[in-house]
Computed example of a mutant assay.
Amino acid sequence: MNNDSFLSKLPILISVFGALVLILSIAYDYGYFMVFGVGFSEIPTTLSDHLRSSLTWIPNTLLVAFGVVALELFNRRVEQGMTEEEIIQTSPTPKFTAWFRDSPKYPIIALAVFAPFSFIFNIDLPLQAWQFSLIIIWFIFHNFLFSHERVLERTSKEFYLFSRWVPAILIFVVFSGAVAANNIKEGGGQKFVFELEKDKFEGALVRAFEKYYLIWGESKNIKLISSGKVISLYPAYIEIESNKKIQPTGKSGG
């Protein structure tokens, strides 16, 4: 692609990227709010609120993507750029090599398929396990859909890659939001003191919207407070080296 062609398509690429970020941000917020038992119908979010949440999920997603790409490039370098068939054919023991290279997928598949059966055995799996399981199950299902040569031949490479990776990314992002919210519910969020005109209470700041604060209170429930009613907010306690907790003297306006 020459420079002129790339520049002419740049506005389209920017629009597609912006739409993709917005869609993934909404998916992240969906998983996030679902853990707290609320939905978009109860939360007065705006498009800018969803775009702001992208600052939360984009770094982790890029880090995972970088790790996957780096591992793939490392494997290609170690394997000297040979295809799977070339590696097997050049091996002194082709059958064993084919089995050995194919063997890691079986325990991965077994772990992924086990997750749906956890309900039968009344096993409470962490959200990260469901995240891993559903992504692997989707890849298995996608492999089945495109397992026939005729289907694969009549499918463009772009659609194949899109249909394979976009659902997997959506699953990853939705569960990333759910994991972040669950961490707050279990007490991992930063506690703040919210001062109103005639009230003061403590809670974890779930999300700061354009016009509202979403708070997880000490009574284990969600509070939606207009930012205009909050006179000030500040961390509830500061940890010091002696493991004692002291209340800060400084306040920051909300």
Rank of each mutant, 00 (worst) to 15 (best):
S53M: 08
T83A: 07
M82V: 01
Q80A: 13
N60R: 04
S91M: 13
T83W: 08
E79I: 03
N75A: 06
A98R: 10
R101E: 03
R52T: 12
A98V: 01
T97I: 13
E86T: 04
R76W: 14
A65C: 15
I87N: 02
T97H: 14
V64A: 11
G81S: 07
L55N: 07
L62C: 13
R76Y: 12
P92T: 09
R101D: 02
T61C: 09
T90D: 11
R52H: 13
L55V: 08
F66R: 09
A98P: 02
F74K: 11
F100K: 15
F74M: 10
E84C: 00
F96I: 11
V78I: 14
N60A: 14
S91F: 10
Q80I: 08
R52M: 08
F66K: 06
T97L: 14
V69P: 00
A98G: 10
E85S: 09
E85W: 05
T83I: 08
R76D: 14
F96P: 04
V68F: 07
L73H: 06
A65N: 15
L73I: 00
A70N: 03
L63H: 03
Q89K: 10
E85H: 11
V64T: 05
T97E: 12
I87Y: 04
E85Y: 07
Q89S: 11
V69F: 03
P92W: 10
T90C: 11
S91T: 03
P94R: 00
S91C: 08
T61Q: 06
R52S: 11
Q80W: 10
E86V: 08
F100V: 13
G67F: 02
W57G: 05
T56F: 00
